[in-house]
Design a protein around this nucleic acid. Structure first.
Lengths: 234, 234
DNA sequence: ACCTGAACACCGTTCAAGT
DNA sequence: ACCTGAACACCGTTCAAGT
């Protein structure tokens, strides 16, 4: 065993340190780094995505990541691309544009459920990557099938992606936030008692405000978009 | 002049340092700190909101802020409350719920235009503060006038605020991002040439995708919500 | 060509000491 | 009661040196 050689150590009570194998050249890849980043986010939240933690996970020097990504932000963009890939995995158009837009929306939602911290920091980023482009094309294909062309199609694409990605990203943030129980108390409890008569409508629905089913809200939002789109098409 | 006394200085060429007056006790307030935070965000973006920069702006020790806010996050929450106050300033119900919901939506949008960096980091936060509660009550009042009660009202309130705050926050992020010109290039230029036939729909509307008018998109989104709400009411 | 270790300029936060 | 200065444990990023 290595620790039989009693090397003088400034921190004698330091926790067991990973002895850090040296990585062979070429053994690190953007794909492995992206996977490590995603698993750190899943396990410990957004604050765990640091170069130091990546180094531990990858059994490499923290600075080795810089051989493959120019900055922390680029790592996050790669995570966003990975979330797009996960969302689209196995997707095929059904031939029914309404069903396709619903399917794509729930795919994004389920991805945010599976990777909340990653969704909260990456899902509303523009990656300019191939998987994002696949997603854009799939939505535009559905809107084309619905009869929209050119400028109208682009406008509805924007409305749709604002809605879907925004809702998925904020749901990720809700799920990832550590103070889940504290936040559940909510403002109703904090402020309503102070001056209930100034906020009559909020006071009246205080109970329902404390028990929001965000998945139901998302479903309603998607349905309302599809209904409004049908109106636009007439 | 002070510098006639040739005090030996380790950094002889250091830039002129603000001599840092000592603040009298009680002279600092949460309001002044919040205003300083907002003006730092407006002038230099989200990365300028640090304790060191706040100290310079306030002519106080960076740590003095901790007498009034428990953490950086609490300062951001105070900024969010301030954005709510700015948005609501002078608001009164017109008696027409549709006009009120439009008015409130554009108030949030204009606030994001005026304070993009602040909007990008604070606008989709839940503050549990009095100004947020005023906004919630105003939206619920309009939905009540539209005929919605209880659970239905809360659900539509959520759909509406997801839409409005999400869109305003992401528009703030777009405006605040320094690489405005670089981002304007967009993915179409980056990826479409590589394999145009794999993304036929995106390729077809590439020009329109590069020239999105986000304000028009926001307007369309609000109108679609109001249309869909009318359908729900039937 | 890729990986490492040391160093740099920050950052939020804590706390004993001032007034 | 409030403000300050020094200190702490980080952080992203750079770069000369290894292999």
């Amino acid at each position: 065993m290595d620790d039989m050689t009693a090397v003088p150590d400034a921190s004698a009570e330091a926790p067991v340190q990973a002895p850090r194998l040296r990585r062979k050249r070429g053994s690190l890849s953007p794909e492995e780094i992206t996977a490590a980043a995603l698993s750190l986010l899943d396990a410990e939240g957004a604050s765990a995505l640091t170069f130091a933690r990546l180094g531990v996970t990858l059994q490499a020097s923290p600075t080795a990541v810089y051989r493959h990504f120019a900055s922390r932000q680029e790592v996050i963009v790669a995570v966003a691309e990975e979330l797009d890939a996960i969302s689209l995995d196995g997707y095929e158009s059904s031939g029914d544009w309404r069903a396709d837009l619903e399917d794509l929306a729930w795919r994004a939602w389920r991805t945010a459920l599976a990777h909340p911290a990653a969704a909260s920091i990456a899902m509303s980023l523009i990656t300019n990557g191939p998987n994002e482009l696949r997603a854009v094309d799939a939505v535009l294909a559905a809107l084309h099938a619905a009869g929209l062309r050119g400028r109208d199609a682009v406008l509805q694409y924007q409305v749709y992606s604002n809605l879907v990605l925004g809702a998925a990203a904020s749901h990720g943030e809700r799920l990832a936030s550590v103070d889940g129980e504290a936040a559940a108390e909510g403002w109703v409890q904090v402020y309503a008692p102070a001056n209930p008569s100034r906020y009559p409508y909020a006071t009246r629905v205080a109970d329902e405000l404390r028990r929001i089913d965000y998945e139901e809200v998302f479903g309603a939002q998607v349905q309302m978009f599809l209904d409004a789109l049908t109106v636009v098409l007439d």
